[in-house]
Simulated assay, not measured.
Amino acid sequence: MPETTTLFLIDPDPLARRIVGRIADQMNLDFRNYTSAEDFVEAYTRRTPGCIIAEFRLLGISGIELQNRLVDEGISLPIIFVSAHAEIAFAVRAMKQGAITVLEKPVSEQALWDSIQHALAHAKRVRRMDAKHAAIGMRLAKLTSKERDVFDLLVQGHPNKAIANRLDLSIRTVEARRHHIFRKTGTKSIAQLVRMVVETERRGGDR
């Protein structure tokens, strides 16, 4: 059974709670409200899908400090900041660190709705990308160290003869390891192997 997508509001403002709660109900999403970032961190179950809507100015851990913590811990929940006192410098910093947007209070319900839709679409892309990278990692992990040596040279464009000379192997041994690499990674060509490497190196670049 798929997990319910959740809107996490971190804001003690009762008006924000009513607005976000109403949007969550209209979108058929779970809704959880926390008055502090500490309460959210303590309650959050890792990998629960959704997005965060957080006030910049929170008692204790601030909104921007929470964002830094999520980044450091590899938690990819998208975050929307709202505040009546959002300074431009903080807004720019938040956006550079991956915030979906920064909305000024009083927040337009339509603007918040649109931002949540964008955040959830972004989160879905990230989860799909993470799953793809995990699958690639599992396939590459099947390679032995000797097969990985051949793999690294193959994706650099070296032909079998050059690989054999470089690793002091017979061409037949290189061909055998190449066959094992294709079988274990589920690929049929060097181009597909290169694509796997490119996908792995791009991880995080589109977040």
Score class of each variant (00 low, 15 high):
residue 23 I to Y: 04
residue 122 H to I: 00
residue 80 I to R: 12
residue 86 A to E: 09
residue 56 F to R: 14
residue 138 M to N: 12
residue 177 R to I: 02
residue 118 H to Y: 07
residue 107 V to M: 11
residue 41 V to S: 10
residue 61 I to G: 08
residue 83 S to F: 05
residue 85 H to G: 01
residue 89 A to N: 04
residue 191 A to W: 10
residue 132 K to P: 00
residue 74 G to W: 09
residue 69 R to P: 00
residue 182 F to K: 10
residue 18 R to K: 10
residue 49 P to V: 00
residue 42 E to A: 09
residue 50 G to P: 13
residue 120 L to W: 11
residue 164 A to N: 08
residue 146 K to Y: 04
residue 85 H to P: 02
residue 173 T to D: 12
residue 6 T to R: 12
residue 54 A to K: 09
residue 154 L to E: 02
residue 17 R to I: 00
residue 73 E to M: 05
residue 61 I to S: 13
residue 13 D to Q: 11
residue 74 G to L: 03
residue 69 R to I: 00
residue 36 S to Y: 05
residue 125 R to C: 05
residue 87 E to Y: 04
residue 134 A to Y: 12
residue 61 I to L: 15
residue 145 S to V: 00
residue 147 E to H: 09
residue 34 Y to I: 03
residue 133 H to P: 00
residue 119 A to P: 04
residue 41 V to P: 15
residue 130 D to A: 14
residue 183 R to Q: 13
residue 40 F to G: 08
residue 113 W to M: 06
residue 84 A to S: 11
residue 151 F to S: 07
residue 11 D to F: 08
residue 104 E to N: 09
residue 76 S to R: 14
residue 185 T to K: 12
residue 159 P to V: 02
residue 87 E to L: 03
residue 12 P to K: 06
residue 164 A to S: 09
residue 7 L to K: 13
residue 183 R to N: 11
residue 53 I to V: 15
residue 169 L to F: 15
residue 20 V to Y: 01
residue 129 M to K: 06
residue 196 M to K: 10
residue 159 P to Y: 04
residue 153 L to P: 05
residue 56 F to C: 03
residue 77 L to P: 03
residue 54 A to F: 11
residue 53 I to F: 13
residue 9 L to A: 10
residue 155 V to Y: 09
residue 204 G to M: 05
residue 155 V to H: 06
residue 205 G to C: 06
residue 74 G to V: 01
residue 170 S to K: 11
residue 160 N to L: 00
residue 174 V to E: 14
residue 109 E to W: 02
residue 100 I to K: 11
residue 151 F to P: 05
residue 81 F to V: 01
residue 140 L to N: 07
residue 104 E to M: 02
residue 14 P to R: 08
residue 129 M to A: 13
residue 94 A to R: 04
residue 158 H to M: 08
residue 85 H to E: 05
residue 159 P to E: 05
residue 36 S to D: 04
residue 82 V to Y: 04
residue 127 R to L: 07
residue 2 P to L: 12
residue 110 Q to D: 15
residue 184 K to G: 08
residue 201 E to T: 03
residue 154 L to A: 01
residue 204 G to C: 07
residue 130 D to F: 06
residue 32 R to V: 01
residue 20 V to G: 01
residue 34 Y to R: 06
residue 61 I to N: 14
residue 178 R to Y: 13
residue 85 H to S: 03
residue 43 A to R: 06
residue 192 Q to D: 10
residue 15 L to G: 11
residue 149 D to L: 03
residue 60 G to L: 04
residue 56 F to V: 01
residue 166 R to T: 05
residue 166 R to S: 07
residue 131 A to M: 07
residue 14 P to Y: 04
residue 162 A to S: 11
residue 143 L to D: 13
residue 94 A to P: 01
residue 44 Y to S: 08
residue 174 V to D: 12
residue 36 S to V: 01
residue 201 E to R: 15
residue 5 T to M: 13
residue 66 L to Y: 04
residue 102 V to F: 09
residue 20 V to K: 02
residue 160 N to W: 02
residue 153 L to R: 10
residue 54 A to V: 02
residue 203 R to S: 02
residue 123 A to I: 01
residue 65 E to D: 14
residue 102 V to Q: 09
residue 50 G to N: 11
residue 96 K to C: 05
residue 25 D to Q: 14
residue 80 I to T: 03
